[in-house]
């Protein structure tokens, strides 16, 4: 299985994917301070800068940006392969389609998980570093804050990895459409903000649990129905 996942990586245009990840990392590492210093600077109702504990609540949804990376990988690993027929090439190997889809899913999930994890680390270091210079967060991070951050970053990266697979079945395997896949990811990313606008309060943990469940359901349908969809 590991060998097959490695092959998925080698088949990709790796420079393109690396470039994309670096852009995500750079943007997301500066976003917390940007929000604190620029966007929320004149908004007394926002309290994310009151402590490191509060700042963590801001940093978590920002990292949902990796849903977009998941959509991009669905495009590279599934949609492009269907469109340029390299998927058919893979179907000709002594490997069942279900296993092949599972390998691709694992590749995407692992890539999103680890890239998100690294992004959390980079964002944490950058936010702390910039706070030393710009003083955007009151106080200093405690050991408890650090612990919370580490635990949340693992749980959050895991949830993001699963949620990034939500567009897989409908837009990746069935419709094979790039733009709806990306739009779906953007919608999911922005969903908490829409709820805020509608003044609906949803427990964040419940929200991430629902997204993770939807991601798993999408994977289940993809594996289950791959033989019935497309070039049969």
């Amino acid at each position: 299985m590991i060998k097959l996942i490695e092959l998925e990586w080698r088949k990709l245009d790796r420079k393109k994917v690396f470039g994309e990840v670096i852009i995500y990392w750079v943007i997301l590492m500066f976003l917390p301070v940007f929000f604190l210093k620029v966007v929320f600077a004149d908004n007394p109702a926002v309290h994310f800068g009151e402590s490191y504990g509060a700042a963590i609540d801001l940093m978590l949804p920002i990292q949902m940006g990796f849903l977009l990376f998941g959509a991009s990988l669905i495009n590279h690993v599934f949609i492009e392969e269907y469109k340029n027929k390299t998927m058919a090439l893979s179907f000709g190997y002594p490997l069942s389609r279900k296993r092949l889809v599972m390998v691709k899913v694992l590749f995407i999930a692992l890539a999103v998980f680890f890239c998100s994890l690294i992004s959390f680390v980079l964002a944490g270091i950058t936010t702390y570093g910039l706070d030393q210079a710009l003083e955007v967060i009151d106080g200093s991070p405690s050991a408890a804050d650090l612990m919370t951050y580490v635990v949340r970053m693992i749980i959050h990266s895991f949830a993001t990895a699963l949620a990034s697979l939500i567009p897989l079945f409908l837009f990746g395997i069935w419709k094979r459409a790039v733009i709806p896949t990306v739009v779906c990811a953007i919608f999911l990313m922005q969903f908490p903000n829409f709820l805020g606008l509608l003044r609906i309060t949803l427990n964040p943990d419940l929200f991430y649990a629902i997204l993770s469940f939807l991601g798993v359901a999408s994977v289940y349908l993809s594996v289950k129905l791959v033989n019935r969809l497309g070039d049969l």
Partner: peptide, 13 residues
């Protein structure tokens, strides 16, 4: 069959 494609190891195409 989908579940038994071992024979394809012996095929080039």
């Amino acid at each position: 069959a989908e579940t038994s494609k071992e024979g394809l190891k012996r095929v080039g195409s």
